[in-house]
Simulated assay, not measured.
Amino acid sequence: MPEVMFAGPDGRLEGRYHHASDRNAPVALILHPHPLHGGTMNNRVVHALYQRFQAMGFSTLRFNFRGVGRSQGKYDGGIGEISDAAAALDFLQAVNPAASMLWVAGYSFGSYVGMQLLMRRPEMGGFVSIAAPASHYDFGFLAPCPCSGLILHGAEDELVPESAVRKLVDKLNTQRGIKIDYRVQPGTGHVFDAAQTEQAVDAAEDHVMSVLNRQRMPMAAD
């Protein structure tokens, strides 16, 4: 789990990076919750996603947004954090020029940043969005949403009503060529305990592997 420092738009950013042995391995960028509410790259859900993508054979990066941990700069209301995520993706692509697919996964605020990144980087191939803050931020920018993905939400989320996320999912699923795999996790609030985290990353793996297997099928038929 090598520590890395890479250039961001407002100073150097601190991360943890795993490099897969396969030069064509897919890559995944994992984004953490809100910096002003204790969010860091060591968040339980973020760390679990990082480990699970690694186990699936991905080159994987998690990092601290500006002003968190040893990352330079200061919180910028979401705008700068989107630029941080783009810089992190630049780093991933630079060290994985032959990557077969690019994924972004985010938890809470990180899922909002991840969805914003989708709109700026059309080469993204999939996403995992956990506890998306659909009642706190306007997700209307997803018009059209550039790719399909997984949205998972806790049924008992006390900060973001499940109905707000379902409304977003329904809107995205009306878009041509977009299929959102929406999963509601019973008995789960906005903050996931250890068991709920394991359940969530199991769902993420199930979704990601189904996409990767579909991608490989035409290759196997050739």
Rank of each mutant, 00 (worst) to 15 (best):
G177N: 13
V160T: 11
R66T: 06
R176F: 15
A99S: 12
R176H: 15
H19A: 12
H207N: 09
E158R: 02
K167E: 13
G8A: 11
T40W: 08
I30C: 06
H19I: 06
V184Q: 12
G149P: 04
F192G: 01
N213G: 01
A164L: 00
F141E: 04
R121C: 13
G57Q: 01
G57V: 04
P133L: 07
H18K: 02
V45R: 00
M219F: 14
C145E: 09
S210L: 08
S148D: 07
D138Y: 14
F141D: 03
E205V: 08
Q199E: 11
Y50D: 03
I79V: 15
G11A: 10
G140P: 09
A221H: 09
L152G: 06
V45L: 02
L49R: 01
H207S: 10
A7F: 09
P186W: 09
D181C: 13
Y107K: 06
H190V: 08
P144L: 11
L117S: 08
N173K: 08
T188M: 12
G15A: 11
A105L: 05
L102H: 12
A105I: 05
R44Q: 12
D138R: 14
N24Y: 06
A203V: 13
F139L: 13
C147A: 09
I79W: 02
P122I: 11
P144C: 10
G77H: 14
F109E: 03
N43R: 03
M5P: 00
S111Q: 10
L89I: 07
V160S: 01
H32S: 14
H18T: 04
I30D: 00
V191D: 06
G67T: 09
F53G: 01
D157S: 06
A48C: 07
S111E: 10
Q93D: 05
N43T: 05
D90T: 14
P35Q: 04
A164G: 00
